[in-house]
Simulated scan of single mutants.
Amino acid sequence: MVVIMKRNASQEEIEAVIANLSAFGFNVHRSSGVNQTVLGAIGVKPGFDHRIIRGLKGVSDVKRVTEAYKLASRAGRNASTIVDVGGLRIGGHAITVMAGPGSVESEEQIRAMTAQVACNGASLFRGNILKPRTSFYEFYGVEEGRLELIREAADRGELKVAIEVTDVARLDMMSEYADILQVGARNMQNFELLRALGTSNKPILLERGLSATIEEWLMSAEYVMRCGNTQIILCERGIRTFESATRYTLDLSAVSVVKAKSHLPVFVDPCRSTGMRNYIIPLARAAVAAGADGVMVDVHHDPANASGAGLSALNFDQFAELIVQIRDVAKAVGRSLTEGGETNGPRQ
């Protein structure tokens, strides 16, 4: 059940509704936006008359949620969630660009990458020190000493940093340097990790699993939200199908479907799905046209000699061209791109 408070509801009224719900045996999760508070009441209570809550002071509406993902569901929410990443607002009118290498390799690479992606229009730097690979023999990343360099270089370029966390043991270390904690596709159903991320105060970028349905993806978001962290960004990065022309099949329909089913912002990664750089810009354009709130791309100073996934990375000139093209598409659909350091207003 979702309880939507009035825009002018006082703190005392909100707390009174929470107390009433708790008295009836519901577990209550509060989500406070800029203009409105929504309360998620979790717990099956057959025959409960929701009019009891509807009649309380400060309540605007009460809606039953039939989906298994109660907190991630759009039911009862007119406004989409905007995730605030240190002043960078994701999920509003503007589209966010996240760029960087699949996994960092050296100090020189980190400094060159952050400078280039920042000056070309990205506002998020993808700074993975460890990247789980399908093959044991592929480049996994370099961990030691890199986090400090990533943080320093990103700050110099006024970029926010997203870092992939692969297990609970590294969570505290990653959190010290990251603005966003990224959950890769292979960890989408790592439930112990999801529970731990639910206690974090960092926004979470949750990639869709390789063979996950949209409902399973949203249920993974529910794990994090149920444990207390409602700042979730979803990322469609391709799923496994019978098609072999590309590495995976980028499911752009998921953007529209998720927007209808959930209030959470959605990114699209056109690099991981295709595995080929010549497909990246066209699919990034399509993602923006489909309504994505952000685009995540691999960029490398020398893709031909990259330690890992060089075929799916753009060079600096190609990245600059991507920005030009998706900016034009964004303008055509009534949106814009968020520049580095710029805040992002609510979607109209």
Rank of each mutant, 00 (worst) to 15 (best):
K6D: 13
R7M: 14
S10T: 15
Q11S: 14
E15R: 14
N27I: 14
V28N: 10
V28K: 09
H29T: 14
S31F: 11
V44C: 12
F48E: 02
D49E: 12
R51E: 15
R64A: 11
T66L: 15
S73Q: 04
R77K: 10
S80C: 10
D84N: 13
G86F: 03
G87E: 00
T96I: 12
G102T: 15
S103Y: 08
E107G: 03
E108N: 10
E108V: 10
Q109V: 01
Q109L: 12
I110D: 03
I110Q: 01
V117H: 00
L124D: 04
R126V: 09
I129Q: 07
Y137W: 10
L147A: 09
E148W: 07
R156S: 13
V161M: 04
E164A: 01
V168E: 15
V168M: 11
R170Y: 11
L171T: 07
D179R: 11
L181F: 02
A185P: 03
N190V: 02
L193S: 08
R195N: 12
G198Y: 04
I214D: 11
M219G: 02
S220W: 00
E222T: 05
V224C: 07
N229W: 11
R237A: 03
G238N: 07
G238T: 09
E243P: 01
R247Y: 08
L252D: 06
K261M: 13
V266W: 04
F267A: 01
C271L: 05
G275M: 03
M276G: 08
Y279M: 13
I280S: 00
A284H: 01
R285K: 15
A289M: 10
A290G: 01
M296V: 08
D298Y: 12
P303H: 05
P303W: 00
P303S: 08
P303T: 10
A304L: 14
N305I: 10
G310W: 11
Q318K: 08
A320T: 07
A320K: 09
E321T: 02
I323F: 08
R327T: 12
D328P: 05
G334A: 09
S336D: 14
T343L: 12
